[in-house]
Simulated scan of single mutants.
Amino acid sequence: MGDSTGRGGRDRDAGGRARSARPRDGLGRPLAYGAPGVARQPEGVARTPEGTVREAQRLLDAGMPFHAHEVFEDAWKSGPPAEAPLWKSLAQLAVGLTHAARGNAVGGARLLRRGAAGLGGRAGESPYGLDLAGLVRWAGELAGRVEGGEPVDAAREAPRLLGGGLE
């Protein structure tokens, strides 16, 4: 990372893809080069579904929903295509929490509602022990509070992925 090839002056990874080498904070916001930041999630990690849920919950509980989104994104992109909508919706919930915690009420509420809509048709299911109905309720409730201007602390608002939508 950080290998700038001169193509537009952008940082590039070893494969030549644009990827910022700037450190990031716990909400994924870029910091100045050289500033201490939070370690990034490695990309393309193939985890079991249970491992994905465990790691995402750990990151959510730590107030790092941006990083949890990356874990869900790995599952979405590397898992069976039939499960991609589940993981994509969970990633949207995590990104919605990220935006809400960053103070972006419009984007946060929109992504929380989009993720909830993606799970809504499956709300009676609990794949891998996920409480989809609880997550849909959590997302709708949080989206309403965010739209009302309430500030959001990512760790305090972290959803419970298993057995109940709220902490």
Rank of each mutant, 00 (worst) to 15 (best):
A32S: 08
T48W: 07
P42W: 02
A94F: 05
Q41H: 08
L59P: 01
Y33I: 08
P65D: 06
E73H: 03
P80S: 14
Y33L: 15
P80W: 15
R47K: 10
G118H: 04
G115I: 06
A56S: 07
P127D: 10
G103I: 08
E73F: 02
R47L: 15
R114L: 06
V106E: 12
S126I: 08
G96M: 00
P65G: 09
H99D: 08
A84F: 12
A101H: 03
L97K: 02
W76F: 10
L93N: 12
R102N: 05
G37T: 06
P36A: 09
R58G: 04
R47M: 10
G124H: 11
D61G: 15
S126Y: 08
Q92P: 06
G121K: 07
V45G: 00
E43G: 09
P36M: 02
L93Y: 10
A94E: 06
E83T: 15
V45H: 01
P85Q: 11
A56D: 06
L135F: 06
L97R: 02
A39E: 12
Y33P: 13
A101I: 05
S126A: 15
R58P: 00
A91E: 11
L111F: 11
A62V: 02
A62N: 05
G129Y: 06
A75Y: 14
A94R: 05
G107T: 03
G120D: 04
L93A: 07
A32H: 07
R47H: 13
G121I: 06
V71I: 10
G37K: 04
V38P: 12
A123N: 02
L93D: 10
A117K: 14
A82C: 07
A68M: 01
A133I: 00
S89V: 07
G118Y: 03
G124W: 09
E73V: 01
G34R: 05
L111V: 03
V45W: 01
P42R: 14
R58E: 05
P85T: 14
R102V: 12
P42Q: 13
A133S: 12
L90D: 05
H69F: 03
D131G: 14
R110A: 14
G37H: 03
G51D: 12
S89F: 02
T48V: 06
N104R: 00
L112V: 02
R110G: 08
R113I: 00
A116D: 09
A68N: 01
P65C: 07
A68Q: 00
G115F: 04
E43H: 10
S78W: 02
G129R: 08
G63D: 07
K77I: 14
L111K: 10
V106G: 10
A117C: 08
A84N: 13
L135E: 01
K77D: 15
A68P: 00
A116K: 15
A32D: 11
G134K: 13
K88A: 08
H69D: 10
A62H: 03
A105P: 06
L59S: 01
D131Y: 15
R114V: 08
T52G: 14
E43T: 13
E43N: 13
L59W: 05
G120N: 10
P36T: 10
P49R: 12
A35T: 13
V95C: 01
R54S: 15
E83M: 09
E125C: 11
M64L: 14
E55C: 11
W76C: 12
H69I: 06
R110K: 12
A105R: 09
L135V: 12
